[in-house]
Design a protein around this nucleic acid. Sequence first.
DNA 1: AGGCAGTTGATAAGTGATTCTCATTGAGAA
DNA 2: TTCTCAATGAGAATCACTTATCAACTGCCT
Lengths: 123, 123
Amino acid sequence: MERNTPQRQAIREALRRADRPLGPQEILDRAGRTVQGLGMATVYRTVKAGVDEGWLKPVELPGSATRYELAGKEHHHHFACRACGSVFEVDGCPGNLTHLTPHGFKLESHDVVLYGLCRQCND
Amino acid sequence: MERNTPQRQAIREALRRADRPLGPQEILDRAGRTVQGLGMATVYRTVKAGVDEGWLKPVELPGSATRYELAGKEHHHHFACRACGSVFEVDGCPGNLTHLTPHGFKLESHDVVLYGLCRQCND
DNA sequence: AGGCAGTTGATAAGTGATTCTCATTGAGAA
DNA sequence: TTCTCAATGAGAATCACTTATCAACTGCCT
């Protein structure tokens, strides 16, 4: 059976409290404050389980490790800061993109990524 | 000085003729028909030079190698086929995305990626 | 044609992310 | 409290992509 270890609790808690998608290293840093000695392998194991169990959703952007956010949120997109590397959620969506889809193609989903400077780095 | 070798000609020609962004392996396959024995290292070298020289533009999508397309085209986005893995250009753009940008953030650029099935794979 | 410096191909090496291995630990049922 | 087996941490191993190395080759200026 599955066990409720402090490591898993800390990792889940870190992700629940985050207001933006976190990468493995960020998760390790945050959960590691609660459970010192936490290993990266455990982060990867827990995150993979979370995705399988459906409460975590991977957020993939080119050039960096996969980040994770809680699943079940409303449809949204992301903003990547080129200075600090953080990725933020942005509400809303450009809307129906069917008109961009080439003839004969079947559109199933889409991603929009905004790039620039976050509030911290914009000062 | 710089030399105009058949390898470089073939690689440039493959990219010029392509109607969609090509990855290193695709470039090798196509240019390799003209110059048999073409090595992957030469593809990477030539492509890197092309980006530096400004006539090639990298197209990065999560989970696959960087693709390249001719620079200087009109602003556009891409469609990735989940079946064959090919990436296509799509004309147009959702428009001004400033309204999605969080307060205090500075928007500099954006990417839109459509996912689904291309014409070939949709039949 | 001659000759040198830029190029090339094959392969080793490097990178960054992610997974695997395994001895040790510890959650939770009995 | 005891016992068992899932979970953990550390580091090795993978994996895919990209770059470095180096001897052999060849554009292209003279």
